[in-house]
Each structure stands twice: as C-alpha cells, then as structure tokens.
C-alpha cells in the first residue's frame, strides 16, 4: 500500500517535472510564435501504471499544474484528463487481448481533442481576456502533434523504468545463502 502511494507521488512529480521542461521549451519556441501544447501526454502512463484510486488524484493534480503553467482555464485540463482516464481504462484495461487502437494514436487523438476543447472554450468566451487566432491554433496543433510523436513512445517507457527502479529499491533485503 505504502509503495503504491510512493509510486503515485513519484509519478506526479515526474509529470510536473516534464511540465517544467515543456515550459522551458515553450520559452524558447514562444518567442518565434509557436507553442508546444501537450495536455494528454500524462493520461496514458498514469492509467497504465496506477489503479483508479491513485491515478485520478495524480491526473487531477497534474491537470491543475498544467492549467497553471499554460494559463488555460484553471481546472479544464484537470477534468479533461480525468475524463480521458475513464476512456483509456475502458480501451486498454478491459481484459481484451488487443486494444482497438494503438496507444500512440490514441494519445495523439486525445491531445488533439483537448487542444480543440481549449480553442472552442476561448472562442465562446470562457476566458474573456484571451484569444487564439485560427492560424496560430492550426500551427500550434501541428507542431505539438509532431513533437508529441516521439514523446508518446518515450514517456510511458520512462515512467515504467522509474517505477521499476523504485520497486527494486523498496524491495526488502533478503539474506543470501
């Protein structure tokens, strides 16, 4: 039980660290008019490695950190990530031998959906002080998708390795005979 909570905490911190690194990339890219927007990156590894009691709080917190970091409506990506978690759980954990969609394709599709939700939210005036022009939206979405392709393959493997490492460390030492 304790190690499961530790896994959840480490995974949450890892998500926040990736957010910070993304922020650094955006700092450089933003000055040339492109933004890397990746809210769906964290859903798949979390749903894969944690049970629902721990995955949902982790995703909610990560979503809030994402909203805070990107200046999106506070809570939008937190709720969006939790909603996507249920779909992910249905698609990839329902005891089926093979999922109907590839994980990478699914994650990219989720990212496109969350990006479009934010674009529509801005257009209908959820945030009265912001505006995202259609041209910038298309460009940001394209660049984000291109950058996301290697990330959706790498990040779940990275999380698994991190938890494996923790698992090895937290195993009780046994005497060798």
């Amino acid at each position: 039980m304790g190690s499961q909570n530790l896994f959840a905490t480490v995974l949450c911190l890892s998500h926040i660290f990736i957010l910070f690194l993304g922020g650094l990339i955006n700092e450089a890219c933003g000055s040339v008019g492109v933004v890397f927007y990746f809210p769906a990156l964290f859903v798949f590894p979390t749903s894969l490695l944690l049970d629902s009691r721990r995955a949902l709080p982790v995703l909610f917190l990560t979503g809030l950190a994402f909203d805070h970091s990107f200046g999106t409506a506070f809570g939008l990506n937190a709720i969006g990530s939790c909603f996507l978690y249920f779909i992910t759980a249905q698609l990839f954990h329902s005891g089926q031998k093979s999922a109907p969609i590839r994980p990478a394709t699914f994650q990219i599709a989720c990212n496109v959906v969350l990006t479009m939700v934010w674009f529509i939210a801005l257009k209908i005036g959820i945030q009265p002080h912001g505006d995202w022009t259609f041209l910038r939206f298309v460009l940001d979405l394209l660049c984000s998708t291109v950058l996301l392709i290697p990330l959706v393959h790498w990040y779940p493997v990275f999380c698994s390795c991190l938890l494996e490492l923790l698992n090895t460390r937290s195993m009780p030492k046994t005497k060798s005979f």
Binding site: G23, N26, E27, G30, V35, F70, H129, G130, W132, D140
Partner: peptide
Amino acid sequence: SKRTLNGWWQE
C-alpha cells in the same frame, strides 16, 4: 524568470 508566450495570451 519565466516567459509564457502562448497563442492565447502572453505573460
């Protein structure tokens, strides 16, 4: 310390 230059607003 940080530049947030998003498409929707900049700070």
